[in-house]
Amino acid sequence: MTSCHIAEEHIQKVAIFGGTHGNELTGVFLVKHWLENGAEIQRTGLEVKPFITNPRAVKKCTRYIDCDLNRIFDLENLGKKMSEDLPYEVRRAQEINHLFGPKDSEDSYDIIFDLHNTTSNMGCTLILEDSRNNFLIQMFHYIKTSLAPLPCYVYLIEHPSLKYATTRSIAKYPVGIEVGPQPQGVLRADILDQMRKMIKHALDFIHHFNEGKEFPPCAIEVYKIIEKVDYPRDENGEIAAIIHPNLQDQDWKPLHPGDPMFLTLDGKTIPLGGDCTVYPVFVNEAAYYEKKEAFAKTTKLTLNAKSIRCCLH
């Protein structure tokens, strides 16, 4: 018999989150649709729960009410004593943790798909938090293969000092899905179709896995975050240069030392320094102006996964 890495157990509980950011409308629209008619997301033997994560922000069509829901799922915020004085999103995070967690427990949901849009030209993107997770690498390989020839990129946010504390991190297997470009507060049919297909293929993978299909060893190309880059700023902290036209919409493309990065209003080009080629992502993302992030630098690498098969009882 072929030796293989056996994944822990079959997958039982899956959640699909929309509206973690209330103005990213593809996930909101799909989740609302699936709450009314969820036939397309159901798979035999699998509990799939669509869920609106930040209903107040969705109602106002804004990213958040008090603070970013997708950055506060750490033990400090989840452990705060519940009171009306807490920011709305912290209270909501505790409610979500109660419903789908608790985080880092045996009772937490197996998989959470968190649906997002970006204003950046990132196409279909899967966000991975753990480079050693054979199950998710296999799932992402399946999704990428199923979507081809449509490109699907994998963004690895594993980093020693950049801690995200994402909404989906309460699950055993957290999956971020990011599709763009799409303006905030807008629905685009092409973007919706791409996100819908990503979810379909992900659920198909889980179904095949649960039925005992063995997935042979595989490898995927990923883009691992190195650092986030702020806009150049003046002495008052105001933005002093904008994304250069040569960099705009060039997510995932190589940016070499000396290539144009920013452009000042008086026409001066600010190039990339250093001696390493990087791959920019979230270029000129609207939501990241407040976070002082013009783009993120990534490096390209390959992740390998062992063969996996479900432990059938």
Score class of each variant (00 low, 15 high):
191 I>Y: 03
107 D>H: 13
264 T>Q: 09
255 L>R: 05
117 N>I: 02
40 E>S: 04
101 G>Y: 05
59 K>L: 11
209 F>P: 00
302 T>F: 10
16 I>V: 07
306 K>M: 06
35 L>M: 12
100 F>T: 06
68 D>G: 07
190 D>T: 09
87 P>R: 13
155 Y>S: 07
193 D>E: 09
135 F>V: 05
282 F>G: 13
71 R>L: 14
313 H>V: 12
207 H>R: 10
302 T>E: 11
269 T>A: 07
278 V>I: 15
4 C>N: 08
232 P>Q: 03
29 F>Y: 12
100 F>Y: 11
212 G>L: 04
297 K>H: 06
248 Q>G: 00
119 T>D: 04
32 K>H: 13
266 D>E: 11
75 L>N: 12
199 I>K: 00
142 Y>D: 00
110 D>K: 05
105 S>H: 08
57 A>R: 04
192 L>D: 01
81 K>Y: 07
14 V>G: 02
235 E>L: 11
253 K>M: 11
214 E>D: 10
259 D>T: 05
14 V>H: 00
206 I>C: 12
131 S>Q: 10
70 N>C: 06
101 G>E: 06
59 K>E: 15
146 S>Y: 11
272 L>S: 07
257 P>C: 05
101 G>N: 10
130 D>I: 02
126 L>Q: 00
266 D>I: 03
90 V>L: 09
297 K>G: 04
208 H>F: 09
255 L>A: 05
41 I>P: 00
194 Q>G: 15
270 I>V: 14
230 D>K: 07
75 L>F: 14
98 H>T: 13
152 C>K: 00
174 P>V: 12
67 C>E: 13
37 N>D: 13
33 H>G: 14
204 D>N: 07
150 L>W: 13
123 G>K: 11
85 D>R: 13
80 K>F: 12
245 P>Q: 05
193 D>R: 06
309 R>E: 05
177 I>S: 01
261 M>V: 15
105 S>V: 09
168 R>P: 10
34 W>L: 02
78 L>I: 08
132 R>C: 10
295 F>R: 02
113 F>T: 02
259 D>A: 06
230 D>S: 09
254 P>T: 05
41 I>S: 02
89 E>L: 04
217 P>I: 04
173 Y>N: 13
181 P>D: 00
186 V>R: 02
23 N>M: 04
181 P>S: 04
264 T>M: 13
290 E>D: 13
273 G>V: 10
3 S>N: 12
150 L>I: 13
267 G>C: 07
273 G>Y: 09
253 K>P: 00
52 I>K: 01
30 L>D: 01
57 A>L: 06
210 N>K: 11
260 P>Y: 04
29 F>D: 00
180 G>P: 00
192 L>Y: 08
118 T>L: 11
132 R>N: 13
121 N>Q: 06
303 L>T: 03
120 S>A: 12
248 Q>E: 14
139 M>H: 00
239 I>P: 09
159 H>W: 06
254 P>E: 12
231 Y>R: 03
176 G>I: 11
57 A>F: 06
182 Q>M: 06
11 I>E: 00
214 E>Y: 14
151 P>H: 08
69 L>N: 07
184 Q>K: 11
278 V>T: 10
185 G>N: 15
140 F>M: 15
141 H>K: 06
184 Q>I: 12
200 K>A: 11
104 D>Q: 10
70 N>V: 07
125 T>N: 05
265 L>T: 08
272 L>I: 09
263 L>H: 06
105 S>K: 12
260 P>H: 05
225 I>W: 10
48 V>I: 09
170 I>C: 14
79 G>F: 14
20 T>E: 03
66 D>F: 06
232 P>T: 03
100 F>E: 06
162 L>P: 08
267 G>D: 07
268 K>M: 09
263 L>F: 13
225 I>Y: 11
161 S>V: 08
183 P>Q: 05
134 N>E: 06
32 K>P: 02
154 V>C: 14
71 R>F: 09
101 G>I: 05
187 L>H: 03
306 K>W: 06
31 V>I: 12
87 P>T: 12
24 E>F: 01
305 A>E: 01
269 T>M: 15
226 I>W: 11
296 A>D: 15
88 Y>N: 08
249 D>V: 01
104 D>I: 07
90 V>H: 14
26 T>H: 02
215 F>E: 01
228 K>D: 08
273 G>C: 07
17 F>M: 12
126 L>N: 00
139 M>K: 02
303 L>P: 01
41 I>N: 03
50 P>Q: 02
216 P>W: 03
215 F>W: 07
147 L>A: 05
245 P>R: 04
291 K>S: 13
23 N>F: 03
219 A>I: 06
164 Y>D: 07
154 V>L: 04
268 K>P: 03
123 G>Q: 06
301 L>K: 10
50 P>S: 09
195 M>C: 14
66 D>N: 14
11 I>F: 08
158 E>V: 03
220 I>L: 14
59 K>M: 11
226 I>C: 13
304 N>I: 10
91 R>H: 09
24 E>K: 00
131 S>A: 15
199 I>G: 01
210 N>Y: 03
121 N>E: 03
18 G>N: 00
19 G>I: 03
42 Q>T: 10
220 I>C: 06
275 D>A: 10
115 L>W: 00
298 T>Q: 02
229 V>G: 01
164 Y>P: 09
